[in-house]
């Protein structure tokens, strides 16, 4: 966390003939250094904090929420935000704050699961296609193109129609829809890295394909994938909203941010808070994922890392 400034090469009297300063750096676990640097970036740190809050909220939803998600109270319907109901109530008199808190779990679970599926499958496909090229590339990427050619929503609807609605299947559907995106991003990045001299250099000392892929190609191809992950997390939360709106995702009366946003849409002139608060929740989550993704990308680059560790010099 206290990154040392680089000593000036020429000033070191104990330098060898190559002029390398002999100051050593205490070894420190890499993940801790990464985390430390990430937290020094105020935007990324703030985003991480907010996301941590949202995740904690999703975990302890039952104990935080002022009331149950489906506690209907007809006399309290469509109440504006007040001390009693900070986010107001909906058309059935349910407390929106409670529903936002309880909906977090559903939205995040679907988001993470969907992106996790897409990331895993897409990255592997893109890595193989980009690295091996030729017929491997042709076969895998044509398949991806086919998948990509379907309108995303239509594809998701088809999958859900086969597997039936529900949040698990929603995640699977969104995940499959996103696979080609990850495959393409990964492939494009791998194509560039594959030609790097350091990859050739590692091959020249006898490194196997597996080693080249995992130690050199993937880490260097990762930045666009990381950014894509953060963007996709955002889109997955929105996609879950869209599918729920169509009645294929989360089933009412269970709360999810997307579903609440969709339901609140009809009341937008009458009671803005119905759509506003779940909308804000989505917005905040998406924004934080994006900012965190940017920060992460910078921190994972050793060149940026030294600049940051070097501080204000």
């Amino acid at each position: 966390m206290t990154g040392q400034p680089l000593p000036e090469p020429a000033a070191s009297p104990t330098a060898t003939d190559a002029g390398v300063p002999s100051t050593s750096r205490p070894p420190r676990p890499r993940w801790r250094e990464t985390l430390g640097l990430l937290l020094r970036n105020p935007t990324a740190a703030g985003s991480a904090l907010v996301l941590l809050g949202i995740v904690l909220m999703a975990i302890f939803d039952e104990s935080i929420a002022p009331s149950g998600a489906n506690q209907i109270s007809v006399e309290d319907r469509l109440q504006a935000p007040s001390w009693e109901h900070p986010f107001g109530t909906d058309d059935l008199g349910r407390d929106i704050l409670s529903r936002v808190i309880l909906g977090a779990g559903v939205s995040l679970r679907v988001g993470f699961l969907a992106v996790g599926i897409a990331l895993l499958i897409g990255t592997v496909i893109g890595l193989l296609a980009g690295y091996y090229g030729r017929w491997v590339d042709d076969v895998l990427m044509r398949f991806m193109d086919m998948l990509f050619a379907f309108p995303a929503v239509l594809l998701a609807i088809a999958i859900l129609a086969v597997r039936g609605p529900g949040s698990g299947n929603t995640a699977l559907a969104i995940g499959i829809v996103y696979v080609p995106i990850f495959a393409r991003v990964t492939r494009a990045s791998v194509l560039g890295v594959r030609e790097e001299v350091y990859v050739r250099a590692s091959r020249s000392v006898g490194a196997s394909d597996l080693r080249l892929l995992t130690r050199h190609v993937l880490p260097n191809a990762a930045p666009p994938i990381i950014v894509q992950t953060s963007i996709s997390l955002a889109f997955a939360v929105l996609a879950e909203a869209a599918l729920s709106f169509l009645g294929l995702g989360t089933q009412p009366p269970n709360p999810s941010w997307g579903l609440m946003l969709a339901e609140g849409r009809g009341y937008i002139d009458l009671a803005w808070w119905l759509a506003f608060f779940p909308g804000m929740a989505i917005f905040l989550t998406v924004l934080c994922f994006n900012l965190l993704g940017d920060g992460l990308r910078d921190v994972l680059d050793p060149r940026q890392r030294t600049l940051m560790a070097g501080g204000g010099r």
């Binding site: 000036e8 090469p9 020429a10 000033a11 330098a15 003939d17 002029g19």
Partner: peptide
């Protein structure tokens, strides 16, 4: 024959002869 070391950084030139460190 070699000149040991590396040229000085322009942000941090030696106060005397620029070549002094090498």
């Amino acid at each position: 024959a070699t000149v040991p070391g590396t040229p000085p950084a322009p942000t941090d030139l030696p106060p005397g002869c620029v070549f002094w460190p090498r």
